[in-house]
Design a protein around this nucleic acid. Structure first.
Length: 222
DNA sequence: AAGTGATCATAA
DNA sequence: TTATGATCACTT
């Protein structure tokens, strides 16, 4: 089943709003998909389900999901208190080229400048098929948030460019952090060591801290 | 209970 | 192997 991409931001938002209150089971049924028995082996299923329904068309390109609209789609797992259960993956990091890119052209900024957040009930006590889709939020970082995101990105990217990849931990960064993004701890990709020489290391990605996405939710519910 | 590091599925 | 979609699970 192929769904046409939305032609405008307004159309996308309207489509997303129409999903609010719908259960994942109902949506899957509508699209002719089976609900996985365990999320452990289908971690990205919810995101892919929503992408399919809304007509996202970026595939696995390092671009916002709705390329023409410049909008990134993110599902946000919410616990019974209404808070994010997890951090949010933003993008993979090219450990060789990140340093040559300006913030304005970075994948982090191109994805975060406009995000359609879709809250999803995610308490483990609720069966996957019964979890409901929440009201979407079409968000852009405000100037303060943008500045902090940029500072985090700059600090972390500078470390990468100075060959300090092995000194980066998830403790760094106020809103953005870098964590492994790999099949397993033995996955390898090329980066640079402190002498600027190629070095094999673990693939990494940028993530948004759950405390930051919680702040985003509050921005809208006040 | 958070937060960090590890892991799972899939396409190109 | 790279990118996407993320959540799992161990440590603190």
């Amino acid at each position: 089943m192929m769904i046409t991409p939305p032609h405008s931001e307004c159309e996308l938002l309207t489509r997303a709003q129409a999903l609010a209150g719908l259960s994942l089971g109902k949506l899957a049924q509508e699209l002719g998909l089976a609900v996985p028995k365990q999320q452990l082996y289908a971690k990205g299923w919810i995101g892919e389900l929503i992408e399919l329904k809304l007509g996202a068309n970026a595939g696995s390109k390092p671009e916002p999901d709705f390329i023409e609209l410049g909008i990134e789609l993110k599902t946000l797992p919410i616990n019974h208190l209404g808070k994010p259960r997890e951090s949010t993956f933003v993008c993979s990091i090219n450990l060789n080229e990140e340093r040559t890119i300006a913030w304005e052209n970075s994948t982090v900024w191109r994805k975060l400048r406009r995000v359609l957040w879709i809250p999803i009930e995610a308490s483990p006590t609720i069966p996957l098929a019964e979890r409901k889709i929440g009201m979407p939020l079409l968000w852009s970082p405000n100037p303060e948030q943008t500045q902090i995101l940029q500072m985090d990105w700059q600090e972390l990217t500078t470390m990468i460019s100075f060959g300090q990849i092995n000194q980066i931990s998830a403790k760094l960064g106020r809103y953005l952090q870098i964590r492994p993004k790999a099949a397993h701890a033995k996955s390898l990709c090329w980066g640079l060591n402190e002498y600027g020489e190629p070095m094999l290391t673990l693939p990494r990605g940028f993530y948004l801290r759950a405390s930051f996405t919680e702040q985003i939710l509050k921005q809208y519910y006040i």
